[in-house]
Design a binder for these strands. Structure first.
Lengths: 358, 358
DNA sequence: ATTAGCACTCGAAAGGAAAGAGTGCCAACA
DNA sequence: TGTTGGCACTCTTTCCTTTCGAGTGCTAAT
């Protein structure tokens, strides 16, 4: 069921303008600025029909039109100009991304900062829940009371911890434990680390000082933490830039929701966004009650193996979909490229901007 | 230069009430509720004098009185009831603190979260700049293309990184490098890691594959990062709870300032807050322009060695100084206890609440 | 020194009128 | 049949005025 070309043009103009100004758009203004060759009266007729069709609405009788979620949907799917980033933008972005990634480790959190700065909306970076295993355990003997646990994980990160003990241990014991843990605790997921396994290891090592349980505890903690989805939120305060959040209560509600990790964009769980695709969720399309009149733009990146993450941006339904989608898409592609293991598309290339709804 | 007892009582009552309600306090209300045995007219006279003395002011002729910064100062220094936490509060706090600290590593950031949740104000956790050195370097050989760098720092943390190389290295080389780094790079601060040192190490190891520089780069990065003061901010959105930040612009200004690390509470630099002391900075006493009409409460903790940090809470001048000071003081003491190296005061004990101005 | 009483001030809230933007609809027109 | 100018109408926004009330400062009495 299509609508006439002219209606599309008008709808696009209304959405564009409303995104820009946050003010309802009137027929006169469209006639003058939108460059379609007809008078305001004609446009009024068209607008009335667009309202009837559900794409637009009027805040009150004598106001201009604003898009409904359905209107935004149409805009995002068909109407909006797909922004390509300019050469300078691409370069700048690349530079900043690389810089951020060098602060590795917390790269995910800094990417969310970057996304927020770039878009002027709050941004989240999410890592998906994924089973993680230990690849390798090392125990570094420091002195009689101290050693370091080093865990290499299947997601190519390293976790380490300094352990200080009241009792003294000898180097042999540390080595023995290291071997035992390497044979018993690698390649298994967190739920396979059972008390039974720990006890048998403890016996095998002839460990009467509780070393085994200290190490096992760290392993469990590390696996649990790595397996859990986590969220980093940045730039919540950007919300206050948006006129729709001039009401402090409204702003506060959403900000609190976001600060708590947007827990955790329910969209994440069901129907994970495929890598290198940008998904747009408009207003009521969101599952979370708190987001019912906001929009979320999510891009997914692929960090190799089965590691995968999301970067998302949250804003009012009147969001700059086009620009944000372009930037997020680029960021996600950049992340896939830098973090991802294997095959890497050439540096300068955009991933295609697939935009889908719910 | 003292003021009469009754004036003090009245001033205290005004501040208490204003903190509670955020509304100017009138003479009638005081006469009825503040339990000083005199009539509203008498109180009016006293209030007028307190205004003349600079402790109170009137937003306009026919409104009640609100405290000036000088009034708050007097309140904080002499008047306010020094809150002790109740037994339950103490226990609850201890439990939460311990829980947070187990998520070690990012303990500082989670303490700031805790402080914010506890006080319902935005909170910062700052670590002071302090020279950090490497205690020990370990290189773990994983496979021909991969090894792990493990650095143990003088601040008792461990940093590690997985390095993946395009070229293949043998185990001997790794061992040799490890020994060289341990003898050459430990116990020195970041600025002693010179290109000259790196080059001589590279030559000594006979390293033609750039391993040395990879390791050195990580060392430099780690030292730099560890030495830099850092800030974690939590609960910015709590600001929106406060009536004085109903104006979104005002809120936004302060929130942005805080999000950028409150850069970095200039108070930190000059005249570091002594450990186990709580410092209160009221309105214009703050150096940063953005804080001129807010108050900051800062507690310092001592994490052993010369490691030291701050936890701070930011709010309107009308903030609940007493409660916040008590909580921060407790938190700081708890942190000193758990992180600090040596002598530890007994678990349940409060540190004394010293409150000072500028 | 304290208190009751009273006139006064000033902001906040409530009401009302005017202005302005934008619509819907009709009649005229190509 | 689709388009256009014109016009009456609606509804919000803005501004002004009025009212209301809280709280004061002052004065005279205790």
């Amino acid at each position: 069921m299509g609508i006439s070309e002219r209606k599309k043009k008008i709808l696009a103009a209304v959405v564009d303008e409303y995104i820009r100004t946050a003010e309802p758009v009137g027929s006169k203004h469209l006639a003058e600025n939108a460059g379609l060759g007809c008078s305001s009266a004609t446009i009024r007729n068209e607008l009335a029909e667009l309202v009837a069709l559900g794409y637009l609405e009027q805040p009150h009788t004598s106001a201009g039109r604003i898009p409904t979620p359905m209107g935004y949907r149409m805009y995002v799917n068909e109407l909006m100009e797909r922004q390509k980033l300019s050469a300078e933008e691409t370069e700048d972005l690349n530079r900043r991304l690389t810089a951020k990634l060098q602060e590795l480790d917390d790269s995910i959190s800094s990417v969310s900062k970057l996304a927020s700065q770039l878009t002027n909306y709050p941004a989240l970076a999410l890592t998906a829940a994924s089973p993680v295993t230990i690849e390798r355990v090392d125990l570094i003997y420091v002195d009689a009371n101290t050693f370091i646990i080093v865990l290499m994980l299947s997601n190519r990160t390293v976790q380490s911890k300094l352990v200080h003990l009241p009792v003294s241990v000898d180097q042999q014991m540390v080595q023995k434990l290291c071997a035992l843990f390497n044979s018993g605790f690698t390649k298994i997921t967190e739920d396979a680390v059972t008390p039974v396994l720990i006890h048998s290891t403890e016996r095998a090592a002839d460990d009467s000082m509780g070393l085994t349980s200290v190490i096992a505890a760290f392993i469990i903690e590390t696996l649990t933490e790595a397996a859990e989805p986590s969220a980093y939120v940045s730039g919540e305060n950007q919300l206050l830039n948006q006129p729709e959040f001039r009401d402090p209560d409204k702003a506060h509600r959403l900000m609190s929701f976001l600060s708590n990790g947007g827990y955790i964009l329910p969209e994440t769980a069901e129907g994970m966004v495929p890598a290198d695709e940008v998904r747009v969720l408009i207003g009521p399309e969101n599952v979370a009650e708190e987001l019912k009149d906001s929009s979320v733009i999510i891009a997914s990146y692929d960090a190799g193996d089965n590691m995968r993450g999301l970067i998302g941006v949250v804003g009012p339904t009147r969001m700059d979909y086009s620009a944000v989608a372009a930037k997020l898409s680029f960021l996600a592609a950049g992340l896939s490229r830098k973090l991802g293991g294997g095959e890497q598309p050439p540096e300068g290339m955009h991933n295609k901007l697939i935009i889908k709804g719910d």
